[in-house]
Design a protein around this nucleic acid. Structure first.
Length: 268
DNA sequence: CTGAGATCCTGGGGGC
DNA sequence: TGCCCCCAGGATCTCA
């Protein structure tokens, strides 16, 4: 579920909580997060390290520990970083604890354990190098998107989810962007017109920026917690009326994932 | 290269 | 109420 906007908000939080701070001690509660690599090395690198900065590349986070190296973190499906104070209990699913000042700690929580928190090694660097263009960067122009689309006949939905082409979109924002652009998710990437490429470019930026703003907004907690309502236009709305034409939203399996779209606004 | 399917993992929801 | 099954999904791998 965490895609670019959610990962960016985690980065901003970490930057605030950790940048310039010293990690007194680190505890890895689940060795799986370390990606099969020795936990001792990770813990040793973290203990006593000062965090220089926290950056993001697509859905990956990089904690710069200066001379101690770097940590590569991925939120997987359910990962998030939380700030805990003295008396707070670490939430279920806590995988890593970074102790800061007395009683203050940053926790990596990941219930479903798809996430990673590991030292950035050669392999990690190689992985980062395979990533495609950042969709919110200046470099990501309509022309560049058009050129990338020309490279493959993949259905455009799968194209958008391929991190080696455009990096940071997942199942949700790929569907949302295609809806905003009025493009059918099965359409081969190669066959988008220039105009469609331009619209898709604008739609990607819009949906990411909107969600980023939303994710940044401090959550309002009500006494009686109302079920969070679905903030998306088509995602998770099978059978509900399309916000534009009122026709029912349809669900289409693609690459083992569900794509939600409007068959009337997004023609083949 | 392309696309499908399995895998990892867990909690929540639906059905009975 | 309780149990089972299925689903969700990011990344990666195998297979046709």
């Amino acid at each position: 579920m965490p895609e670019l906007p959610e990962v960016e908000v985690n980065r901003e939080n970490l930057e605030r909580w950790l940048s310039g701070k010293k990690i007194r001690r680190a505890v890895v509660r689940d060795r799986k997060v370390a990606g099969g690599k020795p936990v001792r090395k990770l813990v040793a690198a973290l203990a006593g390290a000062r965090v220089v900065s926290v950056s993001r590349r697509a859905k990956h986070l990089v904690l710069d520990l200066g001379s101690r190296g770097k940590v590569l973190a991925h939120l997987g499906m359910t990962g998030k970083f939380l700030l805990r104070r003295k008396t707070d209990v670490d939430p279920p699913g806590t995988r890593v604890v970074l102790e800061l000042a007395v009683g203050e700690r940053v926790v990596f929580q990941d219930v479903r354990r798809f996430g990673h928190f590991k030292l950035l090694d050669r392999q990690g660097e190689a992985l980062l190098e395979t990533l495609g263009v950042e969709p919110l960067s200046k470099e990501f122009s309509p022309r560049l998107l058009e050129a990338l689309l020309r490279e493959t006949r993949l259905p455009v939905k799968l194209f958008l989810m391929d991190q080696r082409r455009v990096a940071g979109l997942g199942n949700i924002y790929a569907a949302e962007a295609l809806f905003l652009a009025g493009i059918h998710p099965s359409r081969p990437a190669q066959r988008l017109s220039r105009e469609q490429a331009r619209r898709l470019h604008a739609a990607i930026r819009r949906t990411l920026k909107e969600s980023l703003a939303e994710a940044r907004a401090p959550e309002i907690t009500y006494v009686e917690e109302p079920e969070a309502e679905n903030p998306f236009r088509v995602y998770g709305r099978e059978g509900e009326p399309c916000p534009r034409c009122r026709q029912p939203i349809r669900r289409l399996p693609q690459g083992g994932r569900s794509t939600f779209f409007c068959a009337s606004c997004q023609r083949r």
